[in-house]
């Protein structure tokens, strides 16, 4: 099956939730990939929507870029609501 393309599969489990990566399937074309993904990843009612994407089409961040990419957001605590202390009288905000 070397000639069958590898597709990554994303399943949305309920309306309103994001599609989540669940694994991959082999298929000759996209419609076969959808069907194979349906058989493999939604046998137990797991999904309401499926995406299949050729694995080759995905660009991933490299692990050695983890620090420059993600560490800078570590200390930006003012992006989180808990940074802003308010007097108790204000109540829930």
């Amino acid at each position: 099956m070397s000639d069958w393309t590898l597709f990554e599969v994303f399943v949305r489990s309920k309306h309103g939730l994001n599609h989540k990566h669940v694994g991959s399937v082999h298929a000759a074309d996209a419609s076969m990939a959808l069907e194979n993904a349906r058989e493999l990843y939604t046998r137990r009612n797991e999904g309401v929507s499926l995406w299949v994407v050729p694995s080759a089409a995905i660009t991933a961040s490299a692990p050695d870029e983890k620090e420059p990419l993600f560490d800078p957001s570590n200390d930006k605590i003012y992006r989180h609501a808990s940074f802003y202390e308010l007097p108790a009288e204000v109540g829930h905000m």
Partner: peptide, 13 residues
Amino acid sequence: VREAAVAYARKQQ
């Protein structure tokens, strides 16, 4: 069978 599926996919493409 697998070859036929690939050939068909190429033609469609």
